[in-house]
Design a protein around this nucleic acid. Structure first.
Lengths: 212, 212, 212, 212
DNA sequence: CATGAATGAGGTTTCATTCAT
DNA sequence: TATGAATGAAACCTCATTCAT
């Protein structure tokens, strides 16, 4: 969708080039997700993308750059969705619900790679060797700050438990990650809607201020 | 200490052999922690251990086995401590406190490698390629089950929020991991005692049943 | 100049084609001179020529052929000048002077590539792999023979030292090459006129028969 | 010979290691001489040396370092001989004779590679990309300076033609190189002794001051 | 058991050449 | 002719593993 929009009006050659670039990125995502950075070979990625090895190097100047582009692409996608669907919510409780929904959707779309996105920028992905490109780090920090303010409002309004908002963000991320990780290993077929409902119940059960 | 105890009464030759084995394992842990599995070379480990490469192969039949032994060793150590210090606590609230203390201590002792132990057995370590040896998985499952029962008692007693005990375990792990991950990146110098206190406050703030 | 003359009367299409061919050859000469044969890529040459890679292959069937054509083109140019300006001189001493002048002019025009032309056909250029095309070798041998006769006349007339004319040719080439090589490395800014004068003095100091 | 001397008293292991290193260097010299730097592959060198590729990398950290070591080794050998046999001669005329003899001997021993040694440090070898290691350049400059003084004495004594000694050195080198180059291409079977005699005749015919 | 040189399969990257447009 | 994306063989280099000492 966004893809089509962005390529409208470009000459056919250029459109094709971008499409191929995208195919390679998607193939790379799948392979990296399966094997990690060092465990994936350029050869494997080329096969998955159905291109020759050399072709990859016409688009990316090294395996490392390819990896960073995959990461950057995921982060950008995820952050765009985050801004729209989570930060867009006026009500803090709804925002938390939206975050859960988004996180689970991302998990579903990006399977193994999902561990990275929206985790603390630790991005201990692969081998903790390749950091996220700086531009992404900045974006992430910014998004976290924005979300912290959302929680802050909820805390101030007496809706969430009384706690430093920054700590609450960390807790939330940790909980989401833990469930996502668990789902990656077991019961991978539970319907999304149920997961969202279950997780919302659990999270709200923890962070809503009871009684008061 | 435990080491000495375990080797008492063995002939000198045998004691030396075990000591060397241990030195290699410890060297390997440091190197793997720094560079991940694929990023570490047998040569590096040999140098760190101050043995020749060939010697490592007298103790472990492959790099992979060496890695698994490092993992297994950590898991066993951690689980022993867990059983003693966490499961040993009669009071559920004290048990949670002990878990936090233990987790933070392990982080401090094993730095980079700490991500693995006590995380969901996903072992997304290194490159998510090498799983924990089966015997470890069994141990971990067993420990988790035991801990689930501890939490269950707390829930039944109305001390913890009303929630499936299994889910609460996942939440707890997630929160601990998130803070540990954050500490690995930032403020790595905060004193342990303070960390324990802070984290206990945060966790209990979330999982203790309020009012009622 | 010579270019225009040679293409007069041809249809426009044909003239353009030849002009493009020439542009490519000149670009190739610059690139090969900078990086040697193996060190230059077809891509680089294409960029320097401001054509696409594929276009180069419409004119030359391989990188190797392109290289040989560059060589051949240089040799032909140089030999034409040699015949006109060196062999045209009736007096042997003037002929030697003209040779020196020509050699230095070629060095100046073709910078790095100059090492090739007029050197013994050893063509130790690039990587000593690509020899001069046979037709060039023939031309060169012929020119050398002609020049040998010039020197022979000078020897017979008692002007040059008494020595086999063929050997004298080799000596002369060696001396010229040595100075050219030196100039390529050091003092690259000395004015041409001074170089010619200096080198003529040196050479004549060696090969003129003294007293007698 | 020097080899044996230098390795006396070393443990056998160490001696073997040095011997292997030398074998690799010699194989590399042969291959580089045949194909130039870029034209030679590490695989070829390994085969010529009868070792596996990986073994070469236990001795030299890259193809480039291997090449530089070959060069350095040749230059050092040649310079040692030069100092002993050429600079050792008291009489300038004998020194020139010795230089000729040495140059021809080196050519014979090192065939294709001979172009490098004792040429002006231009070392336009291979692809003019890899310079001689700095330590060699210094040695060469020093040797050239020493030889310049020898010629200077000959000029002052009225034995050689009256000319700047530095220029005479360049001429001499040029002449030697030209003959060496020619011999590499043609008549490669002429006996050394004859070559030495012929070349000495030619050179002295040019540089001895006649009559007066 | 300790050593470390030797091995070679396998990884990343380059680049001459082709071919559909 | 002009283009430049696609190709894949071949280059350099790494590193887990073996084995003679």
């Amino acid at each position: 969708m966004g893809t089509d929009a962005a390529t409208q009006g470009l000459p056919r050659k250029e459109r094709e080039r971008l499409a191929h670039r995208r195919e390679i990125l998607e193939a790379a995502e799948r392979v990296f997700a399966r094997n990690g950075y060092r465990g994936s070979t350029v050869e494997q990625i080329a096969q998955e993308a159905e291109f020759a090895v050399g072709t990859l190097y016409n688009f990316f100047k090294s395996k490392e750059e390819l990896y960073e582009e995959v990461l950057a692409s995921l982060v950008e996608q995820a952050l765009a969705a985050f801004r729209e669907r989570v930060l867009g919510e006026a009500d803090p409780v709804s925002a938390v619900g939206a975050l859960i929904e988004l996180r689970i959707a991302l998990l579903d779309e990006h399977k193994g790679f999902a561990r990275v996105v929206f985790q603390t920028p630790m991005a201990e992905h692969g081998d903790a060797l390749l950091a996220l490109p700086p531009r992404c780090l900045a974006l992430i920090e910014e998004a976290q700050a924005a979300f912290t303010q959302v929680l802050q409002r909820g805390i101030a309004a007496g809706v969430f438990v009384d706690m430093a908002a920054g700590d609450l963000v960390v807790c939330l991320q940790g909980i989401l990650n833990a469930f996502v990780a668990q789902w990656l290993l077991r019961e991978p077929q539970e319907p999304l809607a149920e997961r969202v409902a279950r997780l919302r119940g659990i999270v709200l059960g923890l962070i809503l201020r009871k009684k008061d």
